[in-house]
Every structure is written in C-alpha cells, then in structure tokens.
C-alpha cells in the first residue's frame, strides 16, 4: 500500500490498465511528453511508447470521434478532454454517436470508451468553461455512464472498472481533489463496481447524498452536526449514471430525512433526478420534504464570486436544520 493523491491514483490506474491490456490507448491534448496539464499521464508515454500514449491535435470532437472508430476495431480508448467545459465541442460525437452505437447496432457493437476529464470549482481558479459541472449533460443521454470519484482510493478502482466496462463512460475528476489529500491506495489492481454508492458515514437521523468534492463538505457538516445531536448518514454516489437508488432508499427508510447535495446548478441535473426517484419510492418514509443544496442557476461564477457561488458547508447545515425541524 502507498499513500497517493488522487492524481497519482489516476496515473496508477492508467498504468495498470495499459499494462494489463495492449488494446488500451491513452490520448488527448498535451498528454504525451507534457504528461497532461495536471500531470495525470506523467511518464506514461516514456513507459508505453507513442503508439499507446499520444498527443492529438487540438480538437475535442476529433478526440471523441476517433474513439468511436477505435472502439469498433477492438481498442479500449481512454481519451482525455483537457477541461470538461471543452466537451461542448465533442457533444455530437459523445451524446449523438458514441452513446447510440450499441442501440443502433441491435446490441452487437460495444463501445468501451472511457473519457477522462477534470472539472469542478474552488480549487484551481480557472477562466470560463474550465470548472463547470456538466455531468448532467452526459447523464441525460441514455447509453452513457458517468462516474465521479471523491478521493484517491475510489478514483483508482472506479477508473480501472470504467476502462474494463464495455459501454462508454465519462469519468470526471474534480480538480480540487487532485492534490488536496492522500489516501492508502493498493499498488496492484482492484476494481469498484459502477452504479454502486458508498455509505461513507453511518447515521440514523438524516441522509446526506453527495458526489465528488461535495462528499467532503457533507462529511464535515455531518461531524459538526453531531455536536447538535444530529446523527447524519453520508452517501457518496460514486456513479451519477446509473444511480444506486437501493442504497439511498435503504438509508432513507432508516433516517426518514434527506438532503441532496450537488455542486452543479440547481436546474434540471442529477439532484432533481435523484430526488424525484426517492420520493416515488419512499414517500411514506419521509418526515420532511427532501431539500437540495446546489449552485444558483447562473453561468459559472468568476473567481471573485466563486466561493460564495459554490454550494458549501454552511448551505448543508442550513438545509439539514430545516429538514430536522420541519
């Protein structure tokens, strides 16, 4: 076991899969000699050669587009979109083509593509279209899976599983988590099943459902709520498409209260999807409406207003108190 940051765990997962399967290819803008703008692919070109790990022209639709062709020819592509805001350039290739090939081919063609991409705010103060939480755009497309790890251990296990999955996965890496803490990460390979949530803290009074960096805000809130005798359970979705409703419902049946937390803007999106399903399946177990913590419905804020704009610990405490005293 080694102590790794999330970025190291991601590099390690890529290395494991490049070694395990000669059909795995890693490519994107600046991922070769430069090792990626966040160094996620550091050293991989030297180790596996330019045929396996390579730079592409600056064109996201091309990066996603060639992945479709490569996947149909037996490769297992792991392309990188340098920042997830750039995915708009690749939306036709992803949602319009990649997501649909299995369906179009009458379930005869697999699409084992894993698109990795950094996103998320509050860590690196980026210009526009770098930090946006756009997971909802992909999650709305039937045929796609969307995975968002909350730390190093999960990142490695989920990335390896995503690469081995025969359907297209968008694997989103929150920039704030890249280097913010270390965790014990096994050096050999291991996988974490997609579509399974993780109960990261057990509690009996209220269920906090979150994913990505918000898991840590939820955990911090849960710790402090203990002082007010509120025992919060925290669930990390890990995969936002598909969502593990079973784990959430089980928890809500115990706690009878829930707060849904996402960094993305409130309109449409993952939170709405989760909440609507929970109320359909567990309305008689609820003692209060499910409240949502989310960013306001504006374009992503510039640096000056970023900290206020992003949902935070205080918003979680406020919403928990509301559901507890409904």
């Amino acid at each position: 076991m080694a102590q790794m940051t999330m970025i190291q765990a991601i590099t390690d997962a890529l290395r494991v899969e490049l070694k395990n399967d000669e059909n795995v290819l890693v490519y994107g803008e600046d991922v070769g000699q430069n090792g990626g703008v966040f160094r996620a692919t550091e050293g991989l070109q030297d180790e596996f050669g330019e045929d396996r790990v390579f730079d592409t022209p600056l064109a996201e639709s091309g990066i996603a587009g060639i992945s479709i062709g490569l996947a149909t020819q037996g490769f297992r592509p792991v392309p990188e979109i340098q920042f997830f805001g750039f995915v708009y350039e690749a939306m036709d290739a992803i949602n319009g083509q990649m997501a649909r090939l299995r369906y179009r081919s009458g379930n005869t063609v697999s699409m084992p593509v894993t698109i990795r991409s950094p996103f998320g705010g509050g860590g690196v103060h980026t210009p526009e279209l770098h930090a946006d939480s756009l997971e909802g755009l992909i999650a709305q497309q039937p045929g796609m899976k969307v995975v968002i790890p909350s730390g190093p251990y999960d990142a490695k296990g989920l990335l390896i599983q995503s690469i081995r999955d025969n359907d297209p996965v968008v694997f989103l890496e929150h920039m704030k988590l890249y280097r913010s803490f270390r965790e014990e990460v096994p050096e050999d390979d291991y996988t974490i099943e997609l579509g399974k949530a993780n109960v990261v803290r057990e509690g009996k009074d209220v269920t906090l459902v979150a994913y990505g960096a918000m898991v840590h805000s939820a955990l911090k809130a849960a710790e402090d709520l203990e002082k007010d005798d509120i025992d919060a359970e925290v669930i990390d979705l890990r995969t936002v498409m598909p969502v593990d409703f079973e784990t959430i419902i089980k928890s809500v049946e115990k706690t009878n209260r829930m707060v849904m937390i996402q960094e993305a803007q409130r309109q449409a999106g993952i939170a709405s999807y989760v909440v609507s399903n929970v109320q359909e399946r567990a309305i008689l177990h609820l003692e209060a409406p499910i409240l949502t913590v989310a960013a306001p419905d504006t374009v992503y804020a510039f640096t000056q207003a970023e900290e206020v704009w992003l949902p935070n610990y205080n918003d979680i405490i406020e919403k928990v108190n509301k559901v507890m005293h409904f």
Binding site: Q267, P296, T298, W309
Partner: peptide, 20 residues
C-alpha cells in the same frame, strides 16, 4: 465593487424567470 452572486443572477435573462 466585488462581483456578487446577485449580479450574476441579474445578468442571466432580460426578464428574470420566477425561479431565478
């Protein structure tokens, strides 16, 4: 003056929808 979230909200539409 420092940018505020209310400024961002006010810049989204010609007329603000009810949810905003």
């Amino acid at each position: 003056p420092k940018q505020k979230v209310t400024d961002l909200i006010n810049n989204m539409y010609e007329e603000l929808p009810a949810h905003l």
